[in-house]
Design a protein around this nucleic acid. Sequence first.
DNA 1: TTTACTTTCAAACAGGCGTTTGATACGCTC
DNA 2: GAGCGTATCAAACGCCTGTTTGAAAGTAAA
Lengths: 221, 221
Amino acid sequence: MREYPKTQMMTEVQIRNTSEQTRLRLLEAAREVFSQHGFQGATVREICRRAEANGAAVNYHFGSKDGLLAEALNFAPLKAMQNANINAGECPRMRLRLFILDLMLMLLDEKNPSSQCQIMARELADPTPALDKIVREAIKPLHDYLGKLVREIADEKTGEAELRRCVHSILGQCLFYRHSQPVLQRLHPRLRYSHKEIEAIAEHIAAFSLAGIKHLGTNLA
Amino acid sequence: MREYPKTQMMTEVQIRNTSEQTRLRLLEAAREVFSQHGFQGATVREICRRAEANGAAVNYHFGSKDGLLAEALNFAPLKAMQNANINAGECPRMRLRLFILDLMLMLLDEKNPSSQCQIMARELADPTPALDKIVREAIKPLHDYLGKLVREIADEKTGEAELRRCVHSILGQCLFYRHSQPVLQRLHPRLRYSHKEIEAIAEHIAAFSLAGIKHLGTNLA
DNA sequence: TTTACTTTCAAACAGGCGTTTGATACGCTC
DNA sequence: GAGCGTATCAAACGCCTGTTTGAAAGTAAA
């Protein structure tokens, strides 16, 4: 996986106690800063400052800012969520509800250590070299899984394009609350994303979407 | 409105023939570059290059890059769309359909000279000093108008919060296609946003949303 | 023509960026 | 202790950014 630095002479113990610790601190700081400012807006110096590491540490341990982003990405939480959803055993409509709730919690919960989704959500709009990997390993599986879920709920005759658009409608509603947060903050200054508020939003999106999916063919030709 | 430069001695004719022309060229170039690269990604030098103006022209005519953005914004197309929608005379459901179609055309049509919406859509995610003005003059009226429209369609007993979430659901679906364009391009490389495709997407969002609004209270407590 | 003023221009400026460098301290093996 | 590979550090590098500067060009009134 990683190539910097090539460990040759040090013992594993030493590595774990010295190098590996700053590596981890850098990764954690990077996730914070990337999720807050985006890739362009984040600076290597600020990441190093938060990690209490030297300014050259990023390039030493990860080769470049790009390399740091690539290793800071972690798709495990998203995959875990999908697996949990598959094994929930509920009916498809209930699984969609759970899916949306879990996704909204990842996107909005401030206390959630999974800033992964926030980093990825930022990447959607303006691409970095890491976007290809993100799409391949996280977004495509997400679309695929959601597509299957919608197919189970929708009418059998529903076409492929229409199915895809339903997936877009669901994800669009969810991502809106993250992408437009600066705007929503100005429109409704009092609004806070408490766990209760997130649940209410998720429930709305689920109900709204289920109605939309169910009545696909009834509104027009 | 503008303060740079303070016109004192030149005749109006001269101003129109010299200064005003480069001003307009700068504004047009700025709209192009801002909509393509976002505010952070856009560089003053590139804007000046496209406008065939000197590198100092932006600061001379607009004071700063921020000032250029503020004057490059033009909310007229968005307001015109809303006015046209009010006067369409159709029933609320049909007006919502028209509204979504017009918005999607503004957001996606490549040939459309109104890159205004694209600039604004970019600003949603990461704020610049111009965001306050954008929210006040464009986004808030948009939310308000859409809110009234939804209120006409929805059940009378629908609460304020739920109404607002419907507006978010509609806008979220629309904006998704713009915000996630880099991702969608990778997921479906063949997809092109022809006028026909945009119409199909708009029609889907309208039908999906109308079903969602109509069946607000039926799915759960 | 002289004067006043606006606009354009090449050049430079100051600051921030990601990155590189060479020295230094450290821990291990021999 | 000698030698070696590793990690950290302050400092600097080269580049790009928005912005400023002072001179030059141009036009219109005096």
